[in-house]
Simulated assay, not measured.
Amino acid sequence: MRAVRGLPLLFLVPLAAMAQDGGLASKAYDGQWRVAVQTTVGNCAPAADVVVTVKDAKIVGVSAGGVETWGYIDAGNMVVGRFSQGERALRANGSVKGASASGAWSASADYCGGRWTATRVN
């Protein structure tokens, strides 16, 4: 995995508002998801692949070491995620349907952003 100015480029899960009812999705999306990230703006690594783990509709892990995760999939199938390492953070948002998901990501401290796509592994 290539570093993004000191931050592994593995942040790809979304930043969106919770559904009006504020609830989380069911466990239907629990498991591991292979995420492909592409940079479309800025000077970050051009592409990266990571595996993100979802449990109880919450983002609980990522395959890059030393990265803290936070995020969820809400009842409206919107994905929101934040991945941080030290002072750097990557925020992602998007939507999930069935065994695939996609959205946008940004890392304001590194002045870059792009798109991500995900496919369920298990």
Results as ranks from 00 to 15, higher is better:
Met1Thr: 11
Met1Ile: 08
Ala3Phe: 09
Gly6Phe: 00
Leu7Cys: 06
Pro8Gly: 05
Leu9Thr: 01
Leu10Arg: 05
Phe11Gly: 05
Phe11Ser: 12
Phe11Ala: 05
Phe11Leu: 03
Phe11Pro: 00
Leu12Tyr: 02
Val13His: 00
Pro14Trp: 01
Pro14Leu: 02
Pro14His: 00
Leu15Pro: 00
Leu15His: 06
Ala17Pro: 12
Ala17His: 07
Met18Cys: 09
Met18Thr: 11
Met18Phe: 10
Ala19Cys: 13
Gln20Gly: 14
Gly22Ala: 08
Leu24Asn: 07
Ala25Cys: 05
Ala25Ile: 02
Ala25Tyr: 01
Ser26Lys: 08
Lys27Asn: 14
Lys27Ser: 14
Tyr29Trp: 04
Asp30Phe: 07
Gly31Thr: 10
Arg34Cys: 00
Ala36Gly: 10
Ala36Ile: 01
Val37Lys: 07
Val37Arg: 05
Val37Leu: 12
Thr39Cys: 08
Thr40Gly: 12
Thr40Asn: 11
Val41Leu: 03
Val41Phe: 07
Val41Met: 08
Asn43Phe: 09
Asn43Cys: 08
Asn43Pro: 02
Cys44Thr: 07
Ala45Thr: 11
Pro46Tyr: 02
Ala48Asp: 11
Ala48Gly: 11
Asp49Ala: 11
Val50Cys: 09
Val51Asp: 04
Val52Leu: 13
Val52Arg: 10
Val52Ser: 01
Val52Glu: 05
Thr53Glu: 05
Thr53Gly: 01
Lys55Ala: 12
Lys55His: 07
Asp56Arg: 09
Ala57Val: 07
Lys58Asp: 01
Ile59Asn: 01
Ile59Ala: 04
Val60Leu: 09
Val60Glu: 02
Gly61Cys: 03
Gly61Lys: 11
Val62Leu: 02
Val62Trp: 00
Ala64Lys: 03
Ala64Gln: 09
Ala64Met: 05
Gly65Trp: 01
Gly65Glu: 08
Gly65Met: 04
Gly66Ala: 04
Glu68Ser: 14
Thr69Gly: 04
Thr69Cys: 09
Trp70Val: 03
Trp70Ser: 12
Trp70Ala: 13
Tyr72Lys: 08
Ile73Glu: 04
Ile73Asp: 09
Ile73Leu: 10
Ile73Thr: 11
Gly76Phe: 04
Asn77Cys: 06
Asn77Arg: 13
Met78Lys: 14
Val79Cys: 05
Val80His: 09
Val80Asn: 12
Val80Trp: 00
Gly81Ala: 05
Gly81Val: 02
Arg82His: 02
Arg82Glu: 12
Arg82Cys: 03
Phe83Arg: 00
Phe83Ile: 00
Ser84Cys: 10
Ser84Thr: 10
Gln85Asp: 05
Gln85Arg: 13
Gln85Pro: 04
Gly86Thr: 08
Gly86Arg: 06
Glu87Leu: 08
Leu90Pro: 00
Ala92Ser: 14
Ala92Gly: 13
Asn93Pro: 00
Asn93Met: 12
Val96Ser: 05
Val96Gln: 07
Lys97Arg: 15
Lys97Phe: 09
Lys97Asp: 11
Lys97Asn: 14
Gly98Ile: 14
Gly98Met: 12
Gly98Lys: 14
Ala99Asn: 15
Ser100Tyr: 05
Ser100Thr: 15
Ser100Lys: 14
Ala101Gln: 11
Ala101Arg: 07
Ser102Asn: 14
Gly103Met: 13
Ser106His: 10
Ala107Tyr: 02
Ala107Lys: 06
Ser108Ile: 09
Asp110Ser: 15
Tyr111Cys: 13
Gly114Trp: 04
Gly114His: 02
Gly114Ala: 07
Arg115Lys: 15
Trp116Lys: 10
Thr117Ile: 13
Thr117Tyr: 06
Arg120Cys: 13
Arg120Val: 10
Val121Gln: 12
